[in-house]
Design a binder for these strands. Sequence first.
DNA 1: TTGGATGCAAACTTTTTGCACTGTG
DNA 2: CACAGTGCAAAAAGTTTGCATCCAA
Lengths: 140, 140
Amino acid sequence: MTELDSILDRLKAKGERVTIQRRIVIESLCKDNAHLTVNDIQRYLQHEFPEQPLSDTTVYRILQWLKDLEFVSQTDMGTMGTVYQLLQHRHHHLICLTCGAEIEMDDDCLVELRQLIHDKYGFKVRLDHLALYGQCHDCL
Amino acid sequence: MTELDSILDRLKAKGERVTIQRRIVIESLCKDNAHLTVNDIQRYLQHEFPEQPLSDTTVYRILQWLKDLEFVSQTDMGTMGTVYQLLQHRHHHLICLTCGAEIEMDDDCLVELRQLIHDKYGFKVRLDHLALYGQCHDCL
DNA sequence: TTGGATGCAAACTTTTTGCACTGTG
DNA sequence: CACAGTGCAAAAAGTTTGCATCCAA
């Protein structure tokens, strides 16, 4: 079963409606484990489904719906805008302020921090997809 | 010497121009170690310096300038908008997604993470002022 | 004196809302 | 068939830009 089918099944199992629009937005998010802005999604859809244009309104509403159901995360990437991605393979980003390089950071790095925050503040922090800034090895 | 004077001196020492507008924006950021949106700053200035109104344009430009010089940090607080604060007393926020409570998190919590990221990726991460989301003790 | 800073107005980007219409379950 | 989902148009919010004017150094 593809990732797309798996997600659609889980949504149906929850009693959520699956429309054509929802289906193709989810399909676009499945590609390459992508981080997409609303514009990225629209550009992708124009290319892949030119016969089925979606309004921005709908894309925003579908993303909000997927976020509420914890199927996608939303991350503010600064100048790159706000990106959405499926909560499948959890990971994060280190972004170099000097050269702009993006390094993928493993979620394991945050295990201790989650525990620490829980122990110290009784707070269950949700770190789904961070973008952290700084200087990369080459620029230091 | 006040915090304001200290900042102004450091700016002058760098050869930066200190205008009336820059001075009063910095003064507003000095109050209460504040986290302010552009609107917060404007409201504060209207109250404290009604004889010297600033355009939003100018406030944005001054904040960008202070950010470039690493005198302030910028943090996206989601629905609360984008806030700016002086990089003096470093700390962070835990924000409850259920009740909206904001808990101040000590910077000590991130010491290990900084070290870990440096060791693993050779990346010097700059965690000046984070806003992390999750569920607070009461809502769990 | 002069280059940088400012104010205004307008444009621009991103996101949200109201309402009539559509289509899924 | 009912009601949730959608599209359109418009508004709202937040931020940026061009250009003429102003002022700190």
